[in-house]
Structure formats: C-alpha cells, structure tokens
Design a protein around this nucleic acid. Structure first.
Lengths: 223, 223
DNA sequence: CGTAACTTTGAGACGTGTCAAATAGCGTGG
DNA sequence: CCACGCTATTTGACACGTCTCAAAGTTACG
C-alpha cells in the first residue's frame, strides 16, 4: 500500500479527480500537503473532513488532562483517518513526516454511508478492524514490559510496511515511539540498544533498523 | 439453559419471542443463563452467535502469550458482545455474575447488516462507540497512575449504572478490576483504602462503594 | 461453626521514570 | 566544503511507584 491511484473521471475536462473509494462508492476529495509536525486537526474541532493518507505518515493522539500525550496510532498511505462518525474529532492528528492527504468532505461520506449499503458495510469493516487493533494495543500497554513493547512495535511496523522487509526506515522519532508505547524516550532508547546487543537488530542510524533475527523479536514480544 | 420468558400478549395464544433490535430490524434470539465465572465463548472459537446482555455482568478479555489476562470491558444489560464481524472470536467472554444473555445467530445479524441499511448503520455506530471507549482505555493505561485508574474506573462504572447514583454495587472482584486496569489486586485494594481515607468514598463492604465526594474522584482521575 | 475464597495490610525487590550530561546527527550559513 | 548550533539520541545514576511475596483479616457459604 504505497500510493493511492488517482482515477480519471468522465467530464468535459479530462482532469484526474482524486477520490476515495468506500465500498465501491467514489467520493471526490482534494489532496493537500502538510509539512512535518503540522496539525491536521485538533480534538474538539468540528469534523468537516475525512482524511486518507496518500503519502507520508500521520499520528493520531489524545492528551490527558495534564497535557501528557498518548499516540493512538500511526497512519500509513492508504489508511483512513476521522471516519469515527462523530460530529467533532475525538482525537488530534499531526503529520509525522511531510505528507499528502486526501480531504473528503464528511457530508459526502455521511451521505454515502446513509444511502449506500456497501459503503456502510465498508465503513463498518474499517471500524471493526480499528477496534481490534485498539484492543491489541490495550493488551500491549496492559501486560507487556518495555522490551516487549518495543519488539512488538518493530514487528507491527514491519508488517504494515509490507511484511517481509528486513530493513525499516522509521518515520517517527523516539519520542513518538515512546508516546505510542507509553514509555519514556530513555526507556525506548535503552530497549533499542539492548536488542542491538542481543543481535536481534542492527541500527546503522537511529531511524534505520535492520531486523537481524525476527524470531528473537517474536520471542521478546511474547513476553 | 433454563426457561424462556413468556409475556402476555393480547388475544391469541402467543409466545413473545425475545429479540435483538438492530437499526429497526428485529432479530430473534434465545435467552440463556450462565452462572458465575462460566465461559460464554473463548478466543478462536467460531463466532456462531452475537450476545446481548439481559441481566448480570459479563467480562471480555484477551490473554497474553504467557497467560496473563487483560479484561477489555465489562458489559452490562443492554450491551452487545461479539458484533466484531469476524469469523472467529478475537476475545473471550465470561460471566462475572450469574447472568442471562440473548443469543442471536450470527448469520441473522450478518444477513441484516448485508441487506438492511439502517441495520448496517446501527452496527457501525456501535462499533464506533466501542472504538472510542477502547481509545479512552488506552489513554488510561498509558498515562495514568494507579490511583487515577481506580478513580476513573469508579466514575466510569457509576456513569454506566445510571449516572447520578451515589451508591455502587460492584459486581466484579478486585482481581477483575485489577485485570481491567492493568494493576495488581494489592494495588487496587490500596487505592480503595486511600480513597476511603481521603473521604472520597466509603466502603461499607468491599463490593459496595458509596461515592462521598465525586469532585474529589474527578480531580484524582484527571491526574 | 468451619472452611475456602476474597480482601487488606506490610515489607522489600524490581522496573521504569526522572534528572543530568555526553554524543551523534542534521541543516544552515559562512 | 566546513564550522556552527540546534535537535535528537544515547548513556548513566538515582528516585519512585508498582509488583511480589507473605500473612493477617474478612466474608460467604456449606
């Protein structure tokens, strides 16, 4: 899942109108660029758009009342953001890297879901998949230690980047990883170092991870 | 499994078939009784039914590979369980108390969602609500300390039991609470004791909680 | 009443957070 | 192209909170 195909639509002018496909329904959208760390939307804002990642990485997050940040998810190209069917966004979203998003008016999405059975079903499937992933994360935060969390993160990210890849380019900082795993940057850093000592990974640079021993990571993850 | 409730209907001899309503669609189901700690379904089992809690409390949970239990949610009367649209259950479910569940064949639910727009939308709304709740729990596990978690738990449970109630009868043990909040029973117990010392709650018995100072709990929860 | 399960309390160990400082990486401007 | 400065990352020492282990106390139930 890299780049989203832009489909040509019939019309007087043969412009390629980018669109989001939801259960066979095409919803036209507008591509928009965001630079690193740019806010895409904030908690409580009226949810005017649904977003699809075209290029780059996005983080969604919530803040506890004393300002601590919990990253709920990283979103890669193809992922949809903001389909939560609420009037206002419950989460915030920011660009982890420079990225391109397809903005689709929520009213169009709502209309599709309200009128089209297969669109509603597609939305349901997406929500169900997200729920399962969120529950997986609950298990990670609830029952795993620091090393296990970082190993699980690497394996998860590796999966989402195409699976078999042995080399990963992490788009996010240690702080992002820490806030996703509910650890501190220091603890995340130490976990990376330890995995390198154990020859489970190599770290040519801090953002570039070579998975040397996937089995070791899986054992580590299991806890 | 015990008796099916008969309800008087006008005129003809009729047995009112208990049913689950999903977006205006009535899906017939069979009530079934479970005793305390009975397994309702296990992870990996084929998902033959969708369950609605009629009476009692149910816990859904996942296990980490070394057997530790994480409770994902407590389900009270009215709640649906197993609507995750997967072929097999991703979670396990057990009866916290003796309880009555309405079993609805998954094939009926799937059919309703596949054919009826308002049923699909209702399912989507339910999934979205569950997702939001799961994310809230992620924030709790990720960013809150022991006291804050227990305070949040009491407020959450209080809300779900009707809101304004000052007295709560907890159906679950300290171990259940601990596994929900990702703490140990000892830590949960100490948090209760501390809140009692602070006059935020009173504990006539270990399962009976009187909320004396909701504001104090809200402050605690916020952390 | 007696027994088993649950809860509370205590003392100490362990893991992660906190604070501080050194190091590496990276973009900018000379 | 190199020097500089800023940010990100790594490393270390120590503190703190929660877990672990142990035991006493309580409750429910036969």
């Amino acid at each position: 899942m890299r780049d989203i195909s832009f489909e040509p639509t019939g019309g007087a002018i043969a412009l390629r109108r980018p669109s989001l496909t939801l259960g066979g329904v095409d919803l036209p959208g507008v591509p928009m660029e965001f630079e690193r760390n740019a806010e895409i939307f904030g908690t409580g804002e009226p949810a005017e758009y649904v977003y699809q990642v075209v290029r780059g990485t996005v983080r969604t997050m919530r803040f506890s009342s004393d300002g601590r940040r919990q990253i709920l998810d990283f979103h890669l190209p193809g992922d949809l953001i903001g389909l939560e069917l609420a009037v206002a966004h419950e989460v915030s979203a920011e660009a982890v890297t420079e990225c391109t998003l397809l903005l689709v008016r929520r009213s169009l999405v709502d209309k599709a879901v309200a009128e089209n059975l297969s669109a509603a079903q597609a939305a349901l499937r997406l929500a169900a998949a997200r729920l399962q992933q969120s529950q997986e994360h609950t298990l990670l935060l609830g029952k795993k230690g620091a090393g296990e969390r970082v190993a699980a993160f690497l394996l998860e990210f590796s999966e989402r980047c195409g699976g078999a890849e042995r080399e990963l380019d992490l788009p996010m900082s240690r702080l992002d990883i820490a806030d996703y795993l509910a650890l501190t940057i220091e603890t995340v850093s130490r976990a990376f170092t330890q995995m390198e000592r154990d020859h489970a990974i190599a770290l040519p640079s801090s953002r570039h991870v070579v998975v040397r021993d996937r089995g070791a990571l899986e054992v580590l993850q299991a806890a």
